[in-house]
């Protein structure tokens, strides 16, 4: 449901591993602590790896939304390590 106040969005469907994570990481770098990023990604490798890598960086994964078109939106709250 519409419960998140998204600060910014990034589309990583136009790149492949490992640039998927890199692009998401760069977008997160632009945010302030506590702000929320929506990461639009493809099924398969990105959805398997990017959420895990984001968690390993110490950020909070709030929700993974499965869209009807098969893509995903990963909602992440920036958390400083």
């Amino acid at each position: 449901m519409a419960e998140f106040r998204i600060t910014d969005t990034v589309d990583i469907t136009d790149v492949v591993c490992p640039v998927t994570f890199v692009k998401a990481k760069v977008a997160l770098e632009e945010l302030e602590e506590g702000e929320i990023l929506s990461i639009h990604m493809n099924d398969g490798e990105p959805v398997q790896n990017v959420p895990r890598s984001i968690k390993e960086e110490g950020h909070r994964v709030l929700k993974l939304i499965h869209n009807d078109d098969g893509t995903y939106d990963l909602i992440v709250q920036k958390t400083e390590a």
Binding site: A2, F4, R5, D8, S38, N67, D68, D73
Partner: peptide
């Protein structure tokens, strides 16, 4: 259909 999400005023970063 994409989930509706509230967006803050968008500005270029």
């Amino acid at each position: 259909m994409r989930m509706p999400v509230l967006r803050a005023a968008s500005f270029e970063r």
